[in-house]
Design a protein around this nucleic acid. Sequence first.
RNA 1: CGGGACAUAGCACAGCUUGGUAGUGCGCUUGCUUCGGGAGCAAGAGGUCGCGUGUUCAAAUCACGUUGUCCCGACCA
Length: 564
Amino acid sequence: MKLKNSYFYTLRENVKDEDSLSGNLLVRSGMIKKNSSGIYMYLPLGYRVLKKIEKIIREEMDNSGAQEVLMPALIPEEIYEQSGRRALIGSSMFSLKDRFGKPFVLGPTHEELFLMAAQSNVKSYKDLPFNIYQFQTKFRDEPRPRFGLIRVREFIMKDAYSFDADLDGLEVSYRKMDKAYRNSFDRMGLDYKVVRADTGVMGGLLSEEFQAVTDIGEDTLVLCDHCDYASNIEVAECVETPLELEDPMTLEELYTPNVGKIKDLVDNYNIPLEKMTKSMIYKIDGEFYLIMVRSDDEINEVKLQKLFNAQSVVLAENDDVVRLTNAKVGFAGPVNTTLKVIADLRIKSMSNFLVGANKSDYHLKNVKLSDFKVHTFADIRNIKEGDVCPKCNEGRITFSKGIEIGNIFKLGDKYAKALGLNYLDKNNQLNPVIMGSYGIGPGRCMAAIVEQHHDDYGIVWPKEVAPYQVAIVVINTKVEAQNDLANSLYTQLQKAKVDVILDDRDERAGVKFNDMDLIGVPVRITVGKTIENGQVEVKLRNEKDVQLVNIDEVLDFVNSKLND
RNA sequence: CGGGACAUAGCACAGCUUGGUAGUGCGCUUGCUUCGGGAGCAAGAGGUCGCGUGUUCAAAUCACGUUGUCCCGACCA
């Protein structure tokens, strides 16, 4: 592309309504533009990057034997009613009515439609396995879009679905996708971890997430410094080392006026965190429970949800807390409560600790396990940095932040049973089809790549995803020899199937250099006064030094750099 | 959904307290000079100050409402 007379602009300053580095760089480089909260336009440069990312994924999917299809985005609401997910997904779904008043939704995910497509193909075990996928726009009405392309309300997703006769078959299909995903992310130049994750709304047997490691990720990745353990914090198990109990001391009330917060207790009463507990009232599928963890631990709601196999887990309203504890918020405790107490496993090893007294402005000191009744002990806290690794029992846990760029699910027979997708096996028996589902967000990949590949001047795209591989900068467009040579190189590179951009704008050299740096083109050829010596300059975006190359050797030189 | 902030030119912002001609920097246009890392000088173009109602002789400025955006929290595939 020649820049003169084309759609190309950059901004010199950050915009104020982008809250992430990648969002700002993508906006400033003219790749994307926000249209509404969490909704973006992809402009020419950005769309090229997106298409290159899609191309990588498409190639890897096709290599795995999957077939591409395209589903509608506009879907009758009743399809989600049938699968039982309408209520589950709830207000995250954009819904609308047609002219006859029939309710439709904009598809937030497509398990149901793919299952319907599979119904046409599957009669017997001979029709299995297969894998179909699409690139489709998904619509999810996020409560809080943020971080540029990372959490948005309209986005393209590559979603794939595998259909197998049994769990062994699913295992094979799942491994194929795992491999295709690793290949894809490797080619994009992403630094990522594969972590165990919650199955969430999708349900099913197992879920693993591909998490790009960055500073601004929304997810906390739990890693071991000794073995290969990797998990999303949502599902990371805690291993508790039992401690010896101390000799019991006398239980007493402690007057703590207006001190409902843990921090104030530490500051004012000199009680160590490990000697305190916190009790929170949760409403789990409509019933109230008192959830108790050590005061320096955090309650893990995903673990609670799994423990109860619950649909909804929410903190109780303040009014409910006051009613159920007969005290101000902040003084709930397990002693003499009518609520069922769910205590974290770590509580088992505590002795002579502090709890809320269920009485405004009072706590109880020197409490022991025998002072109250625990309905269930369970692992309900978040793992912490420095904890023992649950896998190898040797290493220590460290955290890092991640952006979820892909996930793979073993769905099992959940959807096949709900919507009736069966096949006849060799013994003429009807069985449910075993499904897997696999997603990648190309837009998130784009943002994650920028988060990982940038410097003070702008984006540093890895070669395979760069909007253009080579930029030719003409230093002085008034010098005919420079223009001629630049145009000639441009034509030759195009013939050689290299994506090349020619900056022939009548701008000062600095402006062009800065723009090409900002948009992150990997190789720059500078055509300037050195042509008098029969040379041009070549500079790689990710290196500092400029190299002088003879004009007749520059094509080979550039090719060798691109194929490194 | 709860709490907070903001909305003035393509972008970033000032002006508002104390009502009276709408400003600055970058970007854009033209001319001259300059020309290898975001040039200088000069002359210009560009805004019904988010929208609505009210107060007032007079509203970017005050009041009320409304919409949008952002932040913190809740929620989240």
